[in-house]
Every structure is written in structure tokens, then in C-alpha cells.
């Protein structure tokens, strides 16, 4: 079943055509990886899924993104409501300058959560594989944690609003190899409950964690401007062993990029 179906997506920043004609389907309870060289528009596309691009004044989105069949850019849709269904984890860990507990509890609180907040914080931290490390220091500042722990806290924070999709924008690029491994293990555990889309510049990471991979590349348009484009989208195994496009093969074998 498709969680997202994207059809002819184009994104502009003022006059700059950042992404051209992207069409892609994202399946439920799978991990979909977006890979490609820098400037290929993979993060831009990711930020269309929870309408984070709305926060950039000059950004303009054309085309169609259906989320469970609902047009995400339809007139009735409130971007704030979208983000409560579709959580996001950023490139650099960005916990709030508050306690560990308040970091996780903020999302449910503003959403008017009526149940037992302590339980929700505990279960979110457990799912983010952080509970055992922080259960005795919940009232301490989130900045006291290591980078890897902070990123898992950000994952717990995203989970706490009970979304059904997690968007991860290069979630491990600021972390050391051991912390990266923890995040990757965690993604495997999470995919039973969530649909995950991950942007990564690390091909091995895409190969290790994802079910499907979309390869984006930079191309020059008629005016000679750089524009991101989707080159190939397939099962991860096929992309890495038997790519159809030569550009994909060149990229994954390290001949450019």
C-alpha cells in the first residue's frame, strides 16, 4: 500500500528550479532511501512530505503529493496538522534547550494529549532505544547527552506525537561510526510501526537499511541551470547490483559524486 504517491513534483526557490518532475511511490512499513550527490534535491523532496518547505518564503511547490490518497497541498490542508502525522529527524541533532522529559513531552502537550504523559515519554524513549540510558536523568538538560544520544532523543521526540511516517534528513551524518550503527539498528526496529524515508549521502548506509532506493542526480536544464532529478527508483538490491541507468552505476561504483 502506498503511503505517498508523488506525481510530477517540481520545486522552485524564487527563479531557481531546484527539483524537476519527480514521481515516486513510498510503500507502507518500508524504509525508502534517497541517495545522490549534493545539490541533487533529495532533501528538498523530503521536506515536501511534511511541508517544511512552506517555511521558506521563496519556495514554490508544483505537482502532486498524495498522502494516503489525500492531496498534501490541497487547500483544506493545514501544514501544522501534516507535521503531527509525519515526524521529522534533522541532520544535526537539535534537541530543545530543555529537559530530556520536556523534549519528548512537548509534541504531545501542544497536540492536546489527554492520556498519561509519563507513560508516553517512557514508551517513546524505549522505542528510540534511549530509555535505559536516561531514565534516571529525565529532568536534566538534553544538552548533557552525547551527539548520538541527542539524535535518538530527537527520534523519540518525533515518535511521541504518534506519527505514521518518519522523515530522516541525513540523521547520522554528524555522528561517529558507533552512534551511526545504533541509529541504523533503531531504524530496522522502527520500520515495523512506521514508514521511514531517509536521505543519506552514504551509499553503504542506504544499502544496509533501506528496502527501496531512489537515486537523484544533478542535471543541467535548457538555461544551463543545475536542477535535481530522479534518475532511478527501485528495490535497493537491484539498484546496487543491477542498476538500469549508467549514471546510477557510475555513482554507486564511485566513479563520480
Amino acid at each position: 500500500m502506498n503511503v505517498f504517491s508523488v506525481h510530477d513534483l517540481n520545486v522552485y526557490y524564487s527563479d531557481f528550479h531546484a527539483v524537476r518532475d519527480v514521481s515516486v511511490d513510498v510503500k507502507e512499513h518500508e524504509i525508502t532511501a534517497f541517495i545522490g550527490p549534493s545539490g541533487c534535491g533529495k532533501s528538498t523532496v523530503l521536506r515536501c512530505f511534511n511541508r517544511m518547505n512552506d517555511l521558506i518564503e521563496t519556495a514554490r511547490v508544483e505537482g502532486e503529493i498524495k498522502y494516503h490518497g489525500v492531496d498534501l497541498y490541497g487547500g483544506e490542508v493545514d501544514p501544522v496538522q501534516v507535521r503531527r502525522h509525519i515526524g521529522m529527524v534533522f541532520q544535526k541533532p537539535n534537541p530543545f534547550p530543555k529537559s530530556i522529559y520536556d523534549n519528548v513531552a512537548f509534541g504531545p502537550r501542544i497536540a492536546g494529549f489527554k492520556g498519561n504523559l509519563d507513560e508516553l515519554v517512557e514508551s517513546s524513549l524505549e522505542r528510540a532505544a534511549l530509555w535505559d540510558e536516561v531514565k534516571d536523568i529525565l529532568d536534566q538538560s538534553a544538552f548533557a547527552l552525547s551527539g548520538g544520544q541527542q539524535q535518538r532523543l530527537c527520534i523519540a521526540r518525533a515518535i511521541a506525537t504518534s506519527p505514521d511516517v518518519l522523515l530522516m534528513d541525513e540523521p547520522a551524518s554528524a555522528l561517529d561510526p558507533i552512534a551511526t550503527l545504533r541509529i541504523e539498528e533503531l531504524m530496522h526496529e522502527l520500520k515495523g510501526e512506521y514508514t521511514i524515508i531517509i536521505v543519506t549521502h552514504n551509499m553503504q548506509q542506504a544499502a544496509r537499511v533501506s528496502d527501496r532506493t531512489a537515486f537523484f542526480n544533478v542535471s543541467l536544464n535548457e538555461q544551463g541551470q543545475r536542477t535535481g532529478q530522479l534518475v532511478e527508483f527501485d528495490e535497493t538490491g537491484l539498484i546496487f547490483t543491477n542498476p538500469k541507468e549508467t549514471a546510477t552505476e557510475d555513482y554507486i561504483t564511485g566513479r563520480f559524486g
Binding site: V77, D78, H85
Partner: peptide, 16 residues
């Protein structure tokens, strides 16, 4: 999640 249950229009009170 079914399509019918999905309401993305947001709380009107909050918007006000």
C-alpha cells in the same frame, strides 16, 4: 489508517 479517518484540515480554534 484509512483515508476516511484522515483529516488534515487542522483545528479551527487553533487557527483562529
Amino acid at each position: 489508517m484509512t483515508t476516511a479517518a484522515l483529516d488534515l484540515s487542522g483545528d479551527p480554534k487553533r487557527k483562529r
